[in-house]
């Protein structure tokens, strides 16, 4: 399994333990092909643990992702995780490994994986709290576009709304920018909101949210 372990669950579109910069398209294609082959060989009746192992490779055996641009999924909400898998399969959210993996999953498998990871404790990444100035800038952004209207008071999320508190800062920046550029196309409402605030405000929000728990 070791060679299969980098394709991962939501958001892991930079899934290499060595970073993405040096990986050739050929290598990526080969790994994808191998992954797909093994996944396809696996029976639908395979225990969920096998797929969980696959996820853990990038998202972390202990819930702490290997790569800073890979999201925490331990303790994330089931509805949100399911929707991301669904959207990877539909193609409204795109990432080489995730799209490939999601193509092999049926709805009940997506739900089961989402439930499994939702039941894990959210890991402490030890990211520093934002300075007062940064926190104030983030809070101004919240006043403007009402982030907490969906992500709720302590940015804990619920249901299909993701928890943002304590998420990896780099991943938060990446996600918000991808919404802003519509590179991430599975939530146009978020794209609209991110377009209405500045990139500086996005950076402040990410730093503030990462420092929460």
């Amino acid at each position: 399994m070791a060679g299969l372990l980098w394709p991962c669950l939501p958001g892991a579109d930079a899934p290499s333990r060595h970073g993405t910069a040096g990986r050739s398209r050929g290598v990526r294609a080969a790994v994808l092909a191998t992954t797909l082959m093994v996944l396809c060989q696996a029976s639908r009746a395979d225990p969920i643990e096998e797929k969980v192992q696959l996820c853990n490779a990038c998202h972390g055996e202990n819930g702490i992702p290997q790569d800073v641009q890979t999201p925490v999924i331990w303790g994330q909400h089931q509805g949100y995780l399911y929707l991301q898998l669904r959207d990877y399969k539909r193609g409204t959210r795109k990432s080489d490994p995730m799209s490939t993996i999601a193509e092999t999953l049926e709805r009940d498998e997506m739900m089961a994986l989402a439930e499994y990871f939702a039941g894990k404790p959210w890991p402490r990444l030890g990211q520093p709290s934002a300075s007062d100035a940064v926190a104030a800038q983030a809070q101004r952004a919240n006043v403007a576009v009402n982030c907490t209207g969906c992500h709720l008071g302590a940015y804990q999320g619920d249901g299909t709304q993701p928890r943002l508190a304590g998420q990896r800062r780099e991943y938060l920046v990446k996600s918000m920018i991808e919404f802003r550029t519509r590179t991430r196309g599975n939530n146009p409402g978020m794209s609209d909101l991110m377009l209405s605030i500045s990139e500086e405000a996005i950076a402040a929000c990410a730093e503030y949210l990462a420092g929460l728990q």
Binding site: V143, A144, C150, P188, G189, D192, S196
Partner: peptide, 17 residues
């Protein structure tokens, strides 16, 4: 943006000043 199949679909933003 086109209909997003059950996702938030504001067609823009209303922004508090």
């Amino acid at each position: 943006s086109p209909y997003p199949q059950g996702k938030l679909w504001l067609g823009g933003a209303f922004k508090v000043i």
